[in-house]
Design a protein around this nucleic acid. Sequence first.
DNA 1: TCTTAGCACTCTAATTTATAGAGTGCTAAG
DNA 2: CTTAGCACTCTATAAATTAGAGTGCTAAGA
Lengths: 345, 345
Amino acid sequence: MTASLNERKEQILRAVVVNYIKTAEPVGSRTVARSYQGGLSSATIRNEMADLEEMGFLIQPHTSAGRIPSQQGYRYYVDNLMDLNELSEDVKERISTSLSPGKMREIEQIIMNSTRVLSSATNQTSLIMGPQFRKSAFHQLRILPLDEKRGLVVLITDTGYIKNKVIDLQHQLSQSELHQVVSYLNQKLYGLTIDQVTTSLINELKRDLFRRLEILEQAFILLEESLKEEKQIRVFLGGTTNILNQPEFKDVDKIRRMLNLFEQEPLLFKILEDNSSEDDIVVRIGSENELEDIKECTLITGTYRIHDKTLGTLGVLGPTRMDYSRVISVMRRLVDHLNQSLSSS
Amino acid sequence: MTASLNERKEQILRAVVVNYIKTAEPVGSRTVARSYQGGLSSATIRNEMADLEEMGFLIQPHTSAGRIPSQQGYRYYVDNLMDLNELSEDVKERISTSLSPGKMREIEQIIMNSTRVLSSATNQTSLIMGPQFRKSAFHQLRILPLDEKRGLVVLITDTGYIKNKVIDLQHQLSQSELHQVVSYLNQKLYGLTIDQVTTSLINELKRDLFRRLEILEQAFILLEESLKEEKQIRVFLGGTTNILNQPEFKDVDKIRRMLNLFEQEPLLFKILEDNSSEDDIVVRIGSENELEDIKECTLITGTYRIHDKTLGTLGVLGPTRMDYSRVISVMRRLVDHLNQSLSSS
DNA sequence: TCTTAGCACTCTAATTTATAGAGTGCTAAG
DNA sequence: CTTAGCACTCTATAAATTAGAGTGCTAAGA
């Protein structure tokens, strides 16, 4: 816990942060003095700023430049100084229309729309992880015979995931046999989370069933496969090009590293998963992030849920100099809308 | 048709192209002289190069630099001078293993694997358009009741597409009613391409069916919707970061334009569709491309098919200075493998 | 004790100048 | 027709110069 600042220092720190977020240029004492309510000379401000630097809230890029906020400075700002700004009607509307139900029963649709809104309303890159398949509860399994040789397995979870997979039915099963198997499985698996459907459970069921039906090997293999395949989850990205507008990414090499990161889905997944906490919204500034590649970035994540059950996480990733107030406001509203529109369906 | 060149000019042009592709630096007369079989002085080469420039095959960035190939130069090289290089065992293997059947029944899997191989083997950005849904033939329609209120429509085409969509079944249909509708539709639609399933045909069927069943409005709406939704097609991208390694993209602004293009799926679709001709492989150099944004790029596309029916198109996009020989070789082999592995399933 | 005007000092970023080197075109001789 | 030789051009890099923003410190004033 860092010591708290007196009123005046707070006001100066806020001025520096706000200004720097807006202009991306180091902020000098004169600039702060101009915006300071009540009037103080730049010299006084200079003294205070020197103090703030010594205390670790500000940084001087070089001797004759203004100050920029340190990571600790941003942190103090977010925790104590920032006030959330009211969203424009335009943004509010885009959020509601893009999540308007009716059109969308598919969860993937909702997610992709969310990335779009999130990135365009914040001018940053957004990433969204859909409902965690592994934590969804098993709801229904169906097998549709397609022709003599092939069938379609359809797996449905309580969070609205619908996975399908074509499988070989080499040992031909009769309609009624198939039906028996399917209803047995549905009965046994209903309500379990996908994580709970372990290999050993499957084996147990298999043994159980074998007594009654003998040609099921195939059916089980496919079940296992279709589950395994979904262990990794999809992360959706939006507005990746937005980082190119940020002056901190004028260096091609940095751009490369970022874009490279964006192509590695497992990493993105890890980033989001690490941050899905009980709190609705989490702000991780700079080195507060675990992952080396984003230690110069800020990640703001929000978790959406349905009846207190965590479904997924959305995130905004950008330079530490990001408009915290705006991003958090947008995130707040989007999460609320998501919670609402998912609960109502 | 441009005039053809004499042996010596061809040899010089080839040397310039090959060298420039390799080094990305303008090629001087000395360099060409060194690699010239049979020995000629740089002065002679200089004269020839001056001729080639006047004829439009070479360009001089500025007076005291070497030459680089013009668009026309590349074209001549590709049409007359290039010999396809043998692929390394490594690449061959990656192509076959990534397309090995068995694992993959899903067409999307195959496509995504192809993007990966294509971009990594060419060091360029690859884009692939899957089987054109609209041109696939209707195969089967199924409706699975999920619970009282909802059903799952499953639409299957002859090219292996499986689309599903959850729909409301507000006016409740009995099992048998549903069954009647579905089998009627299957009978009527079988074998038509999706493009042929027009709104007017649907309306006709509707009228026809209304005589027998009255509560079908819903079912038809969903059919129409699920078809409409798929009008736009997915284009998969691979290796988008590869353009950052190309020296012609050291300018952040160019990068932005490119990445922006990559985010606009409809444009990518148009690019690929424009180039899916009868020819297997098409090379479009620079301004031969329609789209303004890629007039400084070369696009090499390949079309894969099954029994002479065009399924989809894959492309490699990079600067005009690209290793034509290698890209075409990789593309050739990948297309062959695709054709083969799709025909066999 | 706190504030502030004043001033010398520092450092960067932009601009100018100088320099080296690669490559050319032309000429004239073989 | 080929080629050695040479003056010339142009760029890219490095070095030098300059302008300006902002600081820290001092000393005087409230």
